[in-house]
Simulated assay, not measured.
Amino acid sequence: MRSLFYLCAALAVMALAFWAYRENYATQQALKDVSKLNREISALREAIRMQRAEWAYLNRPERLSELAAVNFDRLGLLPLQSEQFARPENLPMPPVDLPDVTDAVDVMAATAEEEAQP
C-alpha cells in the first residue's frame, strides 16, 4: 500500500513538474509576443506621427497659395472674399411642422405658497 502511495506521489510530482515546465515556456512565449506587439505599436505610432507631420507640411498656407497660383489656368481658384458668404438670415430654413392643437389645455403654474399648503 505504501509503495502504491509513493508511486502515485512520484507520478503527481512528475505531472506537476511537466505542467510547470510547459507553463513557464508558454509564459515566456506570451511575454515575447507582448514585447513584439509593443514594438509594432511603437513603430505604427511613429509612422502616424510622421504622416501627420508630412500632412501639416504639405498643407502649409503659403505652399497651397503658391500651388493655386501656379495652377490657376487649370483650376480657376480665387481667394475667398467676404461677399461670397451668405448672412444667416438669408439662408433658407426648412418650415417647422407644428402639431395641430385640437383641445385647449389650461396650464397653470403653482406658486411656492400653493405648493406649501396641504
Rank of each mutant, 00 (worst) to 15 (best):
S82A: 11
I41S: 01
R49A: 15
A56L: 10
I48L: 02
V107G: 00
R60L: 06
R39I: 01
A43S: 09
M108H: 10
P92D: 04
M108C: 00
R52H: 07
M93H: 11
P61T: 06
R45F: 04
A110V: 05
A30H: 10
N90I: 01
L75E: 04
P94Q: 03
A43H: 03
M93V: 15
R63M: 04
L44K: 01
E66I: 00
G76L: 03
N59H: 12
K32R: 15
V105I: 10
L80M: 06
L44Q: 02
I48P: 00
S65W: 06
Y25D: 13
E54R: 10
M50P: 00
D100P: 13
K32M: 15
I41Y: 00
A110H: 00
E23G: 09
E62S: 09
E113R: 12
E40L: 04
L44M: 02
A43L: 07
K36L: 15
L64V: 09
L64H: 03
T102Q: 12
A104H: 04
R22Y: 05
D73K: 14
P118K: 14
K32T: 13
Q28Y: 07
D97Y: 08
L98Q: 05
E54G: 07
L91E: 12
P79K: 07
Q28W: 07
A47R: 12
R52W: 02
A69H: 10
V105Q: 07
Q84K: 02
Q28G: 06
D100L: 11
S82P: 07
K36N: 14
A20K: 06
K36Q: 15
V96A: 05
P118Q: 15
N59V: 05
A110D: 00
P79T: 06
V107N: 00
A20C: 06
A53P: 01
L44S: 02
D103L: 11
K36P: 01
T111E: 02
A30K: 11
D106G: 06
M50R: 13
E115Y: 07
S82Y: 03
E66F: 09
D106E: 13
P99V: 02
L44C: 01
Q117A: 13
W55V: 13
R49P: 07
L44I: 01
P79R: 09
T102Y: 08
E62Y: 07
R49L: 15
R87Q: 12
R49G: 15
R63N: 10
V34Q: 15
R87S: 10
L98D: 00
N24Q: 14
L91I: 14
V101L: 06
L58I: 12
S35R: 10
R60P: 03
F85M: 08
A30Y: 05
Y25T: 12
R87Y: 08
L44R: 01
S35F: 04
S65K: 14
